[in-house]
Amino acid sequence: MSRQDHIREFAAQALSEGRVDYFIGWKEGFNPSEVIPAFVKEVAQVDQLLWNPLCHHNLVTFLKRNMPDPPEAKIGVCVKGCDSRTLVALLQEQLVDRERLYVVGVPCDGIMDRRRLEKEFAEEIVDIAFSEKGQVVVTTRSGEKREFDQQAVLLDMCTRCRYPNPLYADDMAGPAVPEPDREESQPDWSDLADYEALSDDGKQELLARIYATCVRCFACINVCPVCVCWDRCVNRSRQPELVSQKVETKSNLLFQMVHMFHVAGRCPSCGACDRACPVEIPLYLLHRKMNKELYDMFGFEPGTKLDEKPVFQVFNLADQFGD
């Protein structure tokens, strides 16, 4: 039984038994190269649900405050490994009600970097298919077909993943995938190396260039599953105006730093913000770095233990910070 079949079966069961009002999974978008979040309300619709390496959306986003509709809905939801960490982070702080959730864990082999594929073609991609042998076949609108090695077009963060298996789930869609020995290995932060090697001035120059393109659409914070006050955000406040509403490099960067600090300890770098940004700002430079430092400071990986408190909600008398 494939993972997809498992998901459909779990969804059908939960819906028919009335355990959930709706079930959130993934389905095909406006063409087979696109996958979008699916909200299934009836058993007859569960065949829409699919699972493939294009299912990048972190569906935990739709559980956070003011997203469920109606607000007290009982919700079934699919989570990948990284998604489950955001869910655990929300549960640690009781920001979602566990009683109203039904969670299907989906072990994950890595998600496609669709944007990287897009850049390989001048034309529009209309189909992405996956062969048994780990190949990805991309078709454009005029019918051009090209094959890629699946491992070579994964999201960068997926190639460094330490938690491919969901850490919290009521049911698992199939057997676990192999995962690194976390006792033995350290997280791989080499994606930050190029940036970190820059001089102070080099960093400022790069950031100035990157953040000049931000359009303040707030997709990054709205899509962020752990950014729970998304619709009451300090970044949008005009009275007092803590972050200028002016769209300019300085306040754009300040806005991102505010987001980064406010989710510190909760954000496992699921990358949802990176993928949502319409102008492709490399937000990982901030949140991956933040997680790197938290790991260095506390050996802490957000959203991994249900009974753990996030690092900024507790303290230790023996902390060795400051002079």
């Binding site: 770095k289 933040m290 900024f312 303290f315 008398l317 902390d319 910070f321 400051g322």
Partner: peptide, 13 residues
């Protein structure tokens, strides 16, 4: 005690 954790991260960031 809470603050020093935040400041340490702030300094690094």
């Amino acid at each position: 005690y809470y603050a020093r954790r935040k400041f340490e991260l702030a300094e690094r960031m």
